[in-house]
Design a protein around this nucleic acid. Structure first.
Lengths: 209, 209
DNA sequence: TTGCGTATACTCGTCTGCGAGTACTCGTGA
DNA sequence: TCACGAGTACTCGCAGACGAGTATACGCAA
């Protein structure tokens, strides 16, 4: 798997709007924002121009010459090239067809949840479940509102989002259950460890792999 | 939400091993690798030293003076500071307690799946489901193998991982079902659009927000 | 003993991402 | 009419991430 010449998700977003028609960078950002893409990904102005420049450098975009319209600082309009189109499609193919290697940050957090005491873990997990529920509710509302306005195909990502958030909430809820009922074995040792800092030391076995 | 002074996940990993005992950077990498953390996150040697230096700069690590042992290039051993310990715990609290804003890359791919034809979409999704199934199987095997060796608490992240991969596979499978049976409305228009490049244009309505 | 592959332990330079700043312009209300 | 705030369209420079390179030492085989 060779790595992409551009790399940042903003690059993908730029290609996706450039696909429709030629634009200047600021306009791309405006379109993206107006489509609500900035909800997930607040536009980073610094990156925008770097990314566009890089896309041009690699032949994915080309300048259609800059227009000096009114007194505005001169805008350079970019158009997507055939190579850019190919890159875009290939990128989408990769995103859809292969599962990413780096784990979600929450997973990393979980793997270190031991350092917090069980009580703190419980309250944080509750907090997370609350956020997930809110998110699901909001997305569901958005979905209902958008459904009559555009084809299903353009809404699958929201459906996916909802499904995943629900799954995570369910899992977290189950784990929470184990913690609050004390069903998780070793929870006393955990609490003791966290309060005293003493390691139960029946854990010399740090077998690897 | 103020941003972390260090930011990269490698920083978190470094703090987590420094918590156990003082080490020099290369040793940290070795420990991480030996614990299998590098499966998710192949050690980037360039980043390691930058990150350690930054952690030191912000007072999260301190050098315990460098040792010239044998003829080896002199190794600087670092120890975690109280501030570093606090930063680490706070970081874990954040990771566990708040859901991340930036969506998984697959979600971005889904939102642009329209550019691929339905047939390509189907085969890519199948491929993804295959990968997910393999992943689940592998993780499940690892889990069984690890279970007798260490407490449940240190394995929850694997359980989470499995649950999420299963959920995603289930969702993708459902979507695939709709695609292959033609149950998804507008699939003909989609295919036509992809083959001819003609936009069905009963879609002038690009209402926003 | 000499050669060579592998492990150790970094260093360096590049490239990218991004926040913060800049400068100009237009519309609106006082 | 003119001040002001919001929108437009970038520029600049830093700092973080990373790959690739470097240099030494050790084990082991021939």
């Amino acid at each position: 798997m060779k790595k992409r010449k551009v790399g940042s998700m903003l690059g993908l977003a730029v290609l996706s709007v450039a696909l429709e028609r030629a634009m200047h960078p600021y306009e791309m950002a405006a379109v993206l924002k107006q489509r609500g893409k900035d909800a997930d990904m607040p536009i980073k102005w610094g990156s925008l121009y770097t990314v566009v420049a890089n896309l041009e450098r690699h032949g994915f975009l080309e300048a259609v010459e800059s227009v000096k319209d009114g007194g505005r600082p001169e805008r350079t309009v970019y158009r997507i090239t055939p190579a850019g189109r190919e890159e875009f499609e290939d990128w989408v193919r990769e995103l859809v067809g292969t599962v990413e290697k780096e784990p979600p940050r929450f997973r990393s957090g979980l793997s270190m949840i031991g350092v917090l005491g069980p009580d703190q873990a419980i309250s944080l997990l509750r907090q997370r479940v609350g956020q997930l529920d809110d998110h699901v509710e909001a997305q569901r509302a958005a979905l209902e509102q958008l459904r009559p306005l555009m084809p299903r195909l353009f809404l699958v990502e929201i459906e996916y989002d909802i499904a995943m958030a629900e799954a995570e909430a369910r899992w977290a809820h189950g784990f929470l259950e184990e913690l609050t009922t004390g069903a998780l074995p070793g929870i006393d040792a955990w609490r003791r460890f966290h309060e005293t800092g003493e390691f139960p030391d029946d854990l010399g076995e740090f077998v690897e792999r």
